[in-house]
Every structure is written in structure tokens, then in C-alpha cells.
Design a protein around this nucleic acid. Structure first.
Lengths: 196, 196
DNA sequence: ACTAATGTGACACTCAGTTTCACACTGACT
DNA sequence: AGTCAGTGTGAAACTGAGTGTCACATTAGT
């Protein structure tokens, strides 16, 4: 039974190749535009075959959106780590800090990625689709925090969804300002707009 | 100059054909599953050529999602029609009544459509993408209501987004309950969860 | 009745994504 | 050392969505 999820040397090499491919793809997309670049172009630029490229990323979009992978779990974990007596809104707001860290570490890269995603319809669509699954994950984390006897499930879903909406809108404004506005401030403002 | 947007006899015929094609497509999708049905199947079933089908609906998805077309404008108009002194949340909640009317008129059909969209990934993605453009439209309507000196744009965007989130979640729970739960109640509950 | 605009079908084409097969490499076991 | 299974890669054929072009028919306007 070798099926256990052990991290082997091979996995590390795989991850490195994957990162390299994503990098090459991203630069090509930025230079030529996502839609103008074909899978053949990508494969040629990366020095692999079309087959190989598609084995690393099931779709062209995933070569870009892989950057966002695992963020849902990160936020959900951060949410579960918040003190149990904290109200949902504060906990959600704090949990989102786990995600916006990225944007402070590499603002230029994050800005470029966000731009590419926002103004490429197919990327935007896929991104929304993936984010759609974040909401149930956050709602579940909220339920874990609240334990039995907390608010009904629909309330938790609404709050999780609203928090994610705040994140998206804050990112939108941040991107529109070329990263000049402060993301933390924007996110706080967004959350504040939900009240009253 | 015949370019003016006059409704001609042709337009009426076109709309009828469009509705007919959508109907045929919908039944085929429900019976066989969206992904199993090819454009050729659709064309054959509808008795037109593949070209013609694609002229009526730019994509396979649009044959289903055309049912939702114009809802954004309907909600935005309803929003603008609300009294100016009403608070944003109440106005948004009331404006959404313009949309859920459909679900009361033909619950079975609405349920079937919603189901099909929700559990077909490509349809779900396109739907989310289209709904994405509703938010700015609603935010603009809120801005019109508030006039100058109202809340900042980001606040209106957040509220519009949250309201749409409520709609989606209410619809989700309604669908999950096979239409047995009351949609209006669900929507009220959703809005209530935003407060406190 | 003539003409111009428009709807339709046929066809060729590009590209994404799937599947299949063959080949090369690596690591383990004898 | 030599076989053997597992795995990554490349080549190729295939399906299906969507685009573009062209010819033909129908219909509206004069």
C-alpha cells in the first residue's frame, strides 16, 4: 500500500516544474493576452509538449488560477482559530487577513495577477466558480465555532458570502487604484458598510 | 436610416423562434444532461442547423441562461422606484421582489432551471459571471437614489453585493427544499442575518 | 416586379480538452 | 547484472465548441 499521501522527492520536483510552467505561462499571458496564447504556444515556450502542460494544469485557466489554490482552506482554518466568543463579523474580518498577506508581500505580482484575472472573461468566470466553493467552507467553519445552538445555517452562509463579497470589492478597488489605496483600510471600510 | 431600435414583425418572429429553441434545448438538457448534449443534437432536435442555433444563442450555456436575461435591469429599475428616504437594505430587499415573482408564477419550471444551472459546472460558472455584472448595476441605482453626498461608492457596492448574495443563498435553500420552503421567508431571513 | 436586406444552411477552420499508445527513465527485488 | 513495475513524457487521433465565409432563399420596401 503506497497510496498514502507522503511527500516524496518526486512530488517536490513536480511542484517545481509546475511553478516554472505557471511562471512562463503567466508572462506569456500578460505579454500577449490570455486568449491570444494557445496551448501550443505555452508548450513551446515552456519547452514541453502540449500533453505535459495539460497534465500539470487541467485547463489553460488553471495555469493562472493555481496561484489561488488552497486559500479557501487557509481562511477557513484562520476562522476556526479565532476565539469562540468573538462575533462572526469580527472573526470573518480577521480570518481574511490570512489571505491579504499575499498582497502585501508581493504587491506588483498580485496586482498583475488580479488584473489579468479581472479583465479576461474566461479567467474571471473560472475564478468566480472556484470562489463559489469558498462560501460553504467558511460557513462550515463558522458553524464549528458556534457549536450547536448557534445561528441557523442560512445565516452563517449569508455572513460568509457577505465577507467574501467584501474581500472581492476591496480587491477590486485596490486594483483600480493601482495598489495605491491601502487594502486593509478598504477591507475595513467594506465590512463597515455592511452595518447600518 | 432603418437602424433605430423599432420592434418589427421580424423581431417578434425571432423572439418566438428563440423561445422555441430554448424550450427544446432545455428539455434535452434535462433529459440527457447538459454535457451529453452536443450542438448537433440541439440543432437536430430543434430542426435547424447548427449555425442557426449558434446565431440565436452565442453559446450552449446561453440557451439556458437566456431565461435570466434582463433581470439585472428589472431589479435596478425597481430599486430606483423605491422611495428616496428608505434605507438601502429595505430598498434592496423590496427591489428583489421584482425577481422572485418568477419563482412564484412557475415554481416547477424555476426549480428545474435552477437545479440544472446549479449542478452543471459550466452553467454555474457562466451564471456567476453574468450575475457579477448585476452588482455594479445595483450599486449605481443605489447611488442614484442617494444622490450626491450619500455613502461612498464602495459602501454601495458592498451592500448591492450582499443583497445579491442573500438572493442566491435564499434560492439555494429554496432549491434544496424542493420548493417547499417559502422563498420570501428565506430571503427575509437572509437579509436579517446581515444585521447583528 | 425589382432590389436590398436579412435569415438560413453548408462547410472549412481553429483551438481546448480527452484518450490512447509507445517509449524512456527510475527504483526495487532477486 | 537483469528483469520488472511504476511513472513521466511525447505523439497522434479524436470530439466538440465556437468563428468566419459563402451561396442561396425569403422577405420587406419602393
Amino acid at each position: 500500500m503506497t497510496g498514502a499521501a507522503r511527500t516524496t522527492t518526486r512530488d517536490i520536483a513536480r511542484a517545481a516544474v509546475r511553478a516554472e510552467l505557471a511562471q512562463v505561462a503567466f508572462e506569456l499571458f500578460r505579454r500577449e493576452g490570455f486568449d491570444k496564447v494557445t496551448l501550443d504556444d505555452l508548450a513551446a515556450a515552456a519547452g514541453v509538449s502540449r500533453s505535459t502542460f495539460l497534465r500539470y494544469f487541467g485547463t489553460k485557466e488553471d495555469a493562472v488560477l493555481g496561484a489561488f489554490e488552497g486559500q479557501d482552506r487557509k481562511v477557513a482554518d484562520a476562522l476556526r482559530a479565532r476565539p469562540a466568543d468573538e462575533d462572526d463579523w469580527t472573526a470573518l474580518r480577521r480570518a481574511l487577513d490570512a489571505v491579504i498577506g499575499r498582497y502585501h508581500e508581493d504587491p506588483a505580482g498580485a496586482l498583475a495577477t488580479t488584473r489579468l484575472v479581472y479583465d479576461t472573461p474566461s479567467l474571471c468566470a473560472r475564478h468566480l466558480e472556484k470562489q463559489h466553493s469558498w462560501r460553504p467552507a467558511l460557513a462550515e467553519a463558522l458553524a464549528d465555532r458556534a457549536g450547536a445552538g448557534g445561528p441557523p445555517a442560512i445565516a452563517l452562509a449569508v455572513r460568509a458570502g457577505a465577507a467574501l463579497g467584501c474581500l472581492n470589492i476591496a480587491l477590486e478597488y485596490w486594483t483600480a487604484s493601482d495598489g495605491r489605496l491601502d487594502l486593509v483600510t478598504l477591507l475595513d471600510e467594506a465590512f463597515a458598510s455592511l452595518m447600518g
